[in-house]
């Protein structure tokens, strides 16, 4: 450890062992962070966003019908302005459609949203899909 005669600054005094302990822990944390990011950089591939949508709730609301869903992005690239379209299909014909736009769907993350229809789809098929995005 350091011993110095100069007493004017805190740094030059005999450091308490806690200072070294904190220093070592911090160094480990910082090295771990750098290692993590370095691993990400090493395995980084220029992927395109990939979406999967899961409907989580269908519910009658006042004056309409709400379909809530989660949109997950499995890729390592973030998508911005993701437009999701919901359609009620009756034997292949689109009866009603509604759009919703997400500002961001981050990489390896999910976002939640809902589409509001004016009618109850009932037994008819409901299709929810992402129709477009831009790179942030």
């Amino acid at each position: 450890m350091t011993t110095t005669a100069n007493k004017r600054h805190r740094e030059v005094k005999e450091p308490h062992w806690i200072e070294w302990a904190t220093g070592v822990i911090s160094a480990l944390v910082v090295v771990a962070t750098i290692a993590w990011v370095a691993y990400e950089a090493w395995t980084y591939a220029d992927m395109q966003p990939e979406f999967s949508i899961a409907i989580t709730e269908r519910r009658q609301t006042e004056g309409g019908y709400r379909i809530a869903f989660d949109i997950a992005n499995k890729a390592t690239a973030t998508a911005a302005a993701v437009t999701v379209r919901g359609e009620i299909l009756d034997g292949g014909n689109i009866v009603e459609d509604a759009d919703v736009t997400f500002d961001y769907v981050p990489a390896e993350s999910k976002s939640s949203g809902a589409i509001l229809f004016s009618q109850d789809p009932g037994a008819r098929e409901v299709r929810v899909r992402a129709v477009g995005f831009i790179e942030p």
Binding site: T2, T4, N6, R8, H9, R10, E11, V12, P15, E19, W20, T22, G23, V24, I25, S26, A27, V29, V30, T33
Partner: peptide, 25 residues
């Protein structure tokens, strides 16, 4: 803050800068 001449630079680096970065994080 000054470091005295006989103290190696990495002393302050480990005891203050790295913990400081961890705190900021």
């Amino acid at each position: 803050h000054e470091i005295s001449e006989e103290t190696p630079w990495w002393h302050a680096f480990f005891r203050f800068t790295l913990p400081g970065y961890m705190v900021a994080m």
